[in-house]
Computed example of a mutant assay.
Amino acid sequence: MSGVFRSRPALRWLVPTAAAVVVIGGGAAAGTIAASADPTLPERSAAQLLVDVQSAKVDGLSGTVVQTADLGLPTLPGVTGGSGSGADLMKLVSGSNTARVWYAGEDKVRLALLGTLGETDVIRNGTDVWTWRSSDNSAVHAKIPADALTKKDKALPAGVPQTPQEAADAALAAVGPSTAVTTTGAAKVAGRDAYELVLTPKDAASLVGQVRLAIDGEKHIPLGVDVYAKGVDTPALRIAFQQVSFETPDPEQFVFTPPAGTKVTEPSAAELEKQHGSLDDKAAADAKAEAAGTKVVGEGWTSVLVATLPKEDGGSTAGKGQGADTAQLDAITNSLPKVSGTWGSGRLLQSALFSALLTDDGRVLVGAVAPEKLYEAAGK
């Protein structure tokens, strides 16, 4: 089901949706209820729409994507407003983020993230990949090795935010009996007619009520993703195009010249291979994550991510900014309620859409589940 996304991996690097990928990484079962579409759109069943998404192809696009979040978190010290890293963190959980995107094929992709502290651009133009940050006027320039171009996954560097297409991929990748899939008819996104698919988890333990995918009626790519918490009629998370054009962008959009005074770093080919060499090897990636103390307990909508927090180096000297961030994190952690059980003890962060457990033995567990599921996973 996810083959179309793997065959066009560059689409996955356009828009910020990492949070959505974590939240909606469940399964779905293709329904057969016909879409009650607007008269301007032909009727399509849920199963037909899933096939449409599989076969979607665009040669070029550009647009503005806005991500908004209202996760129902309690008041947290240091992230309720103001400026700096606290403001940016608050925007991820209760605010909005904006990105401009350009796509003209696998080897021409540009993403501009507009944040409180400045702009971050990621540009791929052929074998050249640039990452530029206006906040400190720094850039990283990498050359993609020639042999890497023959690999199945030709994505940009790991850690770059993703798209509505990638969010839909996460929701559709594990089509199975854990989810009911229906349609609600037509919707309007960025001024374009779109069908709407509704994915509803069947597992009562999931905090996700629904995931709604708006699929362009002509191009068949996802224009927006809304994630609803159970029992809530407004989306906790939305990632959607605010404006989109399917004209192929001018080649000049992908030509980057560092501004005067930019500090440019160029990693070696060996460093790039070490960082990205196993992207196509899922088993190797899973083994690496396991070795780093990261694993997933359960599956579908109720899966729990378990990670081991890095130990602090008592001999290191943190910079001013790092020290401020550490103090802020400590203040947040200490404000959370204490919990304990046969699994041990720790602190619990709970929202309408997800729960997070920070254990005293240095683990963090996160999932779109009630706390009881985290305690269960912590005991394994």
Rank of each mutant, 00 (worst) to 15 (best):
G224D: 08
A155C: 11
A356C: 05
G95F: 00
G341V: 12
S245R: 03
L111R: 15
P235Y: 07
D325F: 05
W13Y: 13
Q48Y: 01
R110E: 02
E271Y: 01
A148P: 00
G95N: 03
G314K: 15
K154T: 15
A155E: 08
L114P: 03
L348Y: 01
D59I: 03
K274D: 13
K320G: 08
T234Y: 10
L149G: 06
V208S: 00
G84M: 07
V306K: 11
L336E: 08
Q350H: 12
L50Q: 05
V160R: 07
T302R: 00
A56W: 04
T17I: 04
D128K: 13
G314W: 09
K263A: 12
S7A: 14
G379R: 11
A46N: 09
P371T: 07
R347G: 03
L336T: 09
A19C: 12
T32E: 08
A236T: 06
D216R: 06
D360S: 13
L50S: 06
S85T: 13
L207K: 14
T359E: 10
S7I: 05
V58W: 06
A214N: 06
S94K: 12
T333Y: 11
S345Y: 04
Q243E: 15
L114S: 05
V93R: 00
Q48A: 11
A170Q: 07
Y228V: 00
D59N: 12
E372H: 12
D226T: 02
G341M: 11
Q322M: 09
S351H: 01
Y375S: 11
A174I: 06
G217L: 01
T248A: 11
E290Q: 13
V21Y: 13
V66F: 02
K373Y: 04
G277D: 05
S355R: 03
Q165S: 10
D286R: 12
P235R: 10
G78D: 08
A378P: 07
R124Y: 05
L349T: 01
T262Q: 11
G231D: 12
R100F: 09
Q54M: 06
P157E: 07
